[in-house]
């Protein structure tokens, strides 16, 4: 155990040393810098868009993407990728609505069951990547395709269901009439994942595995287990986001997950976690999710059509990631 701990300490120490380098600080804070500029531009172009009420609303909108992004961060940190998050989210969203059917007493059992299903989907992804040695992209692409078929079959193409008041409150309500409940769920998820990554053995192993799977394996880290847990957490996070969106929309929707796969990846990469693995963390991803959501919200407020929003999104992803791409 002491040996394993010392590896963790070393990784942490190296991370600390790297943190001293200016490039790395930029990479870590770059997304918050972009966020700051975006807020200033928002304030100039459309003053109401930086009012506290609106910003709280934006944080509610960003919560689902942010939660999916947490799981995606863990997976990308282990040199993986999870393309199945959107299909997972959609399946859970439809299942939640379809199984609760407006019955208040069913909320807790269904939520627990759905979180379990999400985590199980992640488990299969993790097993495919580690035991069958499939490339993460291919494994989760298959999962995405299969899950799409499953939710279409489950809903018969027209999802139904009604969400009772308690779950609607979690998805759309405001605590004390001010603070969105979904944002609270997001903050709890951020805090939990931050603590796990920073202070738990699993967190250190995740950084170590991402940094060098071989070296970690030789140092006695159960690399497969670390990777499997990362995918399980990703599946769990997608399910959690699906449940929040079920609460927000109030019924099942086939299109609810659109964009979550690629946007979550964009949020992670904008937040400074790299595909090479072993670096980054959830705090950057939070910034990435906020940048994407605020950008869309600003463009909507300015009356720019969907086409313009997509163009801006594409340009900004490329621009932000280019800023630190050359620093490697």
């Amino acid at each position: 155990m002491t040996k394993l701990k010392s590896i963790g300490e070393k990784v942490k120490y190296e991370a600390f040393l790297e943190g001293k380098k200016v490039g790395d600080v930029i990479q870590r804070l770059g997304v918050y810098f972009a966020l700051f500029i975006l807020l200033i531009i928002s304030a100039i172009l459309s003053p109401p868009s930086v009012s506290p009420t609106h910003l709280l609303n934006v944080s509610r909108q960003a919560s689902a993407l942010g939660i999916v992004g947490i799981g995606q961060t863990l997976v990308i940190m282990t040199q993986g990728i999870d393309l199945s998050v959107a299909a997972n989210l959609t399946l859970i969203q439809i299942m939640t609505a379809g199984m609760i059917l407006g019955r208040e007493q069913m909320v807790i059992p269904v939520v627990i069951f759905c979180l379990g299903v999400g985590a199980f989907i992640g488990l299969i992804n993790g097993l495919g990547v580690t035991k069958l040695k499939l490339s993460p992209f291919v494994m989760t692409l298959c999962m995405m395709s299969v899950l799409t078929g499953v939710y279409l079959l489950y809903s018969g193409g027209s999802p139904r269901g009604r969400i009772p008041a308690s779950l609607r409150f979690v998805g759309a309500g405001r605590i004390g009439g001010v603070f969105p409940a979904a944002t609270v769920v997001w903050i709890v998820a951020i805090a939990a994942s931050f603590i796990v990554l920073r202070y738990s053995i699993f967190g250190r192993y995740t950084y170590a595995t991402g940094g060098s799977p071989q070296a970690s394996y030789l140092s006695g880290v159960n690399v497969d287990l670390v990777i499997i847990i990362a995918y399980v957490i990703s599946g769990f996070c997608s399910a959690l986001a699906g449940i929040l969106l079920a609460g927000y929309i109030g019924t099942g929707s086939l299109t609810v997950g659109m964009g979550y796969d690629l946007n979550s990846i964009a949020a992670v990469i904008m937040g400074g976690t790299t595909f090479a693995g072993g670096r980054g963390g959830v705090i950057g991803t939070v910034g990435g999710a906020l940048v994407i959501t605020i950008l869309f919200s600003l463009l909507t407020m300015l009356g720019i059509p969907h086409s313009g929003r997509l163009m801006a999104q594409g340009l900004i992803i490329i621009a932000i990631v280019s800023l630190y791409a050359k620093r490697k």
Partner: peptide, 19 residues
Amino acid sequence: VKLSPLIATLGMMALIQGV
């Protein structure tokens, strides 16, 4: 620019879709 192919073409996908 040394972007990862996934991110570069993802950005391009959104951009061209918008156009």
